[in-house]
Amino acid sequence: MAATQEEILEGLAEIVNEIAGIPTEDVLLDKSFTDDLDVDSLSMVEVVVAAEERFDVKIPDDDVKNLKTVGDAVDYILKHQG
């Protein structure tokens, strides 16, 4: 069963917490991975790999650069999840 927007946000928050140490409650839709959440380009690769596994979705490298905010990632996953 596909995950809801809320479930995806919750999952991403846990992933970002694990990788960058940011408290889950601070991982909100309008936050920028790079500017707000201490997720640099290398750590973003880790976020993407963890999200792919968790939400059964493929996020090609070319699409990763468009995922600036948590909201971008949530929308992408909502649209593409298997």
């Binding site: 290398l42 750590s43 690769v45 880790e46 790999v49 792919e52």
Partner: peptide, 10 residues
């Protein structure tokens, strides 16, 4: 392949 850390080289 996908699980190799992007931090490996640095």
């Amino acid at each position: 392949v996908r699980k190799v850390s992007p931090h490996t080289v640095p």
